[in-house]
Amino acid sequence: MNTEDRLVALVRASVDDDLRGLAVSADLAARVMRARPPRRALRWRVHFMVAAGCAAAVAVISVVPVLFDRPADPQTSPIASQTKTMAPYDPVRLISVGWVPPGLNSGSQAQLLEVTRTADSKAGVRVWQADYVPAGTAGAALQMTVATGQATMSSVRKGTTVSGVGTFRTFSVPVGSAEYRADGTGAVTVIWQPRGGMVISILSSGLSKADVLRFVRETAVTMP
């Protein structure tokens, strides 16, 4: 056996050895289908809604100049408002936490306070943070961070890579989209975008995944 063949055989044997006993969960297909319904089911409804929305927008845009007969204001024209970037705003009054895992301080002891960081303001983001810590000396902890402005789920996700490993999975929330990651060491991370221009991230330790997801689902966000 030449060197090349020996290397191929060694790699093959090593990988095969590592894969021994690997088995797929019986509910894998069901989990996938629950997580993401096929596009086809929604396609016609979405097409219809998009077409109706476009038709309405075209109608408004074409009627307004006729009615008012004045030059378009670049500040309020559809193109200007569409390309306008999301400005950072104070989210404190918009967020209401409905349930806190037992054993953690809440209410006035866990308030959203603004965190000022030069890098954030340079990136067009404002950040608020609330810490839910144990009433005693040790135990579980949860930190909620709210970013407004140019924050996106992917930018927040990139920022959380240092705190753990694992894949983010989507889960359902009353408003917007959200994903969680439980890395097996007791740390659960959630990234939730209830609306454009606002991303809420949750870092927790010592709490069950169910408790963290409940905390998120029972947090109400009022749209400004």
Partner: peptide, 10 residues
């Protein structure tokens, strides 16, 4: 192998 099923699910 611990992360494989997560990656496969994605």
């Amino acid at each position: 192998r611990d992360q494989a099923e997560d990656v496969l699910q994605v």
